[in-house]
Design a binder for these strands. Sequence first.
DNA 1: ACTGAAAGAACTACATC
DNA 2: GATGTAGTTCTTTCAGT
Lengths: 157, 157
Amino acid sequence: MKTRLDKIDLKILEILQNDCRITTKKLAERLNLSPTPVFERIKKLEKEGYIDKYVALLNERKIGLKQTIFIGVKLKGHTRSYLQKFLNQVNDFKEVTECYQVSGNFDFLLKIVLADIDAYEIFVQTKLSLISELGNVHSYIAIKKGKCTTKLDLSSL
Amino acid sequence: MKTRLDKIDLKILEILQNDCRITTKKLAERLNLSPTPVFERIKKLEKEGYIDKYVALLNERKIGLKQTIFIGVKLKGHTRSYLQKFLNQVNDFKEVTECYQVSGNFDFLLKIVLADIDAYEIFVQTKLSLISELGNVHSYIAIKKGKCTTKLDLSSL
DNA sequence: ACTGAAAGAACTACATC
DNA sequence: GATGTAGTTCTTTCAGT
């Protein structure tokens, strides 16, 4: 489990971050290797947990989820159990794609993706605002999407 | 291009959001269909742009990128060209995984993923702070990762 | 739109170096 | 660690309903 990643491993991860449906054969060609070692390296990377999963990224616009909103949340109570309870409740909200407990003038930062502003109103009224100990909430409505990637920078490794 | 998605399409997207390396055959079994129509539907979903891409999601901890930070940025100048210039510059920062222009008391919200706080200091000093017209910057350092998914909620469609 | 069949390609294991 | 081979399974196309 303590195996360090070598150049080839990093290259494999880099390529799979861009396109994970590439065939082992093509990947091997790009690395000037035969498929077998590439196949084995991928299995190792999966098994040891470097690769979490393989997913399809959908086009939000196209499927009709046109609004992204970030929400900064401050709780009234800050005991450990309140913080954990908040995380648990938010986990069940399907509109929430990301939730981090943070330092700064918020306790949590959420990212939510939904159809439109109307759907957001409904989300706030029927879900978010029902959370007990909810303090201040500040919304940041996305006006324009800049960079948005799942690709991590491996160049520093 | 205006084809609406039916129940089967949505189910396919749902499954591919969880695991895009599933074989067409297994996917077909789960849908009680033969592989052919499933294969054709997937191709259609790709071609019409419902599916953007297939990617491997890496484990940030495991590969050594242990720190996630959100940054709220306010610019001094707000002309259209400044806003666009900011987006362009941020695009080149490999540490930045997301950047949205937003409404609220920030102009932009960024998400960055890097090794640790030291790497963050370097990022700010050598990259972020060099941006002209940069106004206030507020950092939200992730203390605990809650939900974090690329899966969009299709249940409302 | 779907089924079923069939050719070609890829996966995966294994023997070998 | 890598290569090459070979059996198995999947992909992808096409004729038919």
